[in-house]
Amino acid sequence: MTHVTGNAPDGTPNWLDIGVPDLDRAKTFYGTLMGWQFEDTGEEAGHYHLCNLRGEPVAGMMRNPEGEADVYWWSVYFAADDCDGVLKRATDAGAQVVVPAMDVMDSGRMAVLRDPQGAHFGLWQGRSHPGSRIVNVPGSFVWNELVTRDSAAAGKFYRAVFGYELEPMPGGMDYTVLRRAGDGRYVGGVLGGSGIALGGGDDPVPSWTTYFAVDDADEAVRKVRAGGGTVESEPEDTPYGRSATVRDPFGVPFHVMKPAPEPQS
């Protein structure tokens, strides 16, 4: 388990949230699947809900403010010591601003952008709230991956914004691993080729998607189906763990994964 007690280094995925049309249904679905408890932050914060694991926030959830929206997704945020400075680097590199930099009470400062190929991502500069307090254990995120049409262009963009080192995966797969500059820590990946059909539609669009760790991928898939979600790919063993691709009742795609054991030194 990684217990986060302060702001992560720039470019580290540090928060997730989702806007949905039916908050109660989402809480039932994700509470059953992930073991989350929910904390309403109150009217001043628009009844934004913290998704807590072992009493610590790991993600956020709210009712989508767009009444006519029919597409929903998990938003991935990246740590930014200087939200405005990173925002400028991103727009200089071709990103479009979706939500300008703004303070979220005393919790932190945020912005939401769309990268040059159309994938949304957020920036989070933590203050009293550094982001996800627990990662890499069942009920929290373990990996984040961009699915996009042009992995080379995407890698160039995110390197310009966050200074990532890019490590192409051997074997002919169009996959690039993103490593944090300085310590070389793996923080995410870029899968080239197309995109994700958000909302279960037929038009794949570039998008970040999240792998949530679970104790048992097969049991997680059973819970997804029982909760009104759908399964796009059945659990499969990989060198990194046993995983499946699923959607929640609103069509939001994500992955469930039982990570492979850490190699013994």
Score class of each variant (00 low, 15 high):
residue 2 T to Y: 03
residue 3 H to F: 10
residue 9 P to C: 06
residue 10 D to N: 15
residue 12 T to S: 12
residue 20 V to W: 12
residue 20 V to L: 14
residue 22 D to V: 09
residue 26 A to M: 08
residue 29 F to E: 00
residue 31 G to H: 05
residue 32 T to G: 09
residue 33 L to H: 14
residue 38 F to P: 02
residue 45 A to G: 00
residue 51 C to Y: 03
residue 52 N to H: 05
residue 52 N to V: 15
residue 53 L to W: 10
residue 56 E to I: 01
residue 56 E to D: 00
residue 57 P to C: 07
residue 59 A to W: 06
residue 61 M to C: 10
residue 72 Y to L: 03
residue 86 V to P: 01
residue 90 A to P: 05
residue 93 A to H: 12
residue 93 A to Y: 10
residue 95 A to V: 04
residue 96 Q to M: 11
residue 98 V to P: 00
residue 102 M to Q: 08
residue 105 M to N: 12
residue 107 S to C: 08
residue 108 G to K: 05
residue 111 A to P: 00
residue 111 A to F: 02
residue 113 L to E: 00
residue 116 P to N: 02
residue 117 Q to M: 13
residue 118 G to W: 07
residue 122 G to W: 00
residue 123 L to I: 00
residue 124 W to N: 07
residue 127 R to S: 14
residue 128 S to W: 11
residue 132 S to P: 06
residue 133 R to Q: 15
residue 135 V to H: 03
residue 137 V to S: 12
residue 142 V to Q: 08
residue 146 L to P: 15
residue 150 D to F: 11
residue 151 S to R: 14
residue 154 A to F: 12
residue 155 G to N: 07
residue 155 G to V: 06
residue 161 V to N: 08
residue 167 E to P: 06
residue 172 G to D: 06
residue 173 M to E: 13
residue 177 V to F: 05
residue 178 L to Q: 00
residue 180 R to I: 00
residue 181 A to Y: 02
residue 183 D to Y: 06
residue 187 V to C: 04
residue 190 V to F: 07
residue 192 G to D: 12
residue 193 G to K: 08
residue 194 S to R: 14
residue 198 L to K: 05
residue 201 G to I: 01
residue 209 T to Q: 06
residue 212 F to D: 01
residue 215 D to G: 15
residue 216 D to K: 06
residue 216 D to M: 09
residue 216 D to S: 08
residue 216 D to W: 10
residue 226 A to E: 15
residue 227 G to D: 11
residue 227 G to R: 13
residue 228 G to Y: 05
residue 229 G to Q: 09
residue 232 E to W: 09
residue 242 R to G: 13
residue 244 A to P: 13
residue 245 T to H: 14
residue 246 V to P: 04
residue 247 R to M: 11
residue 254 F to P: 03
residue 254 F to Q: 01
residue 255 H to P: 01
residue 257 M to L: 14
residue 259 P to V: 04
residue 262 E to V: 14
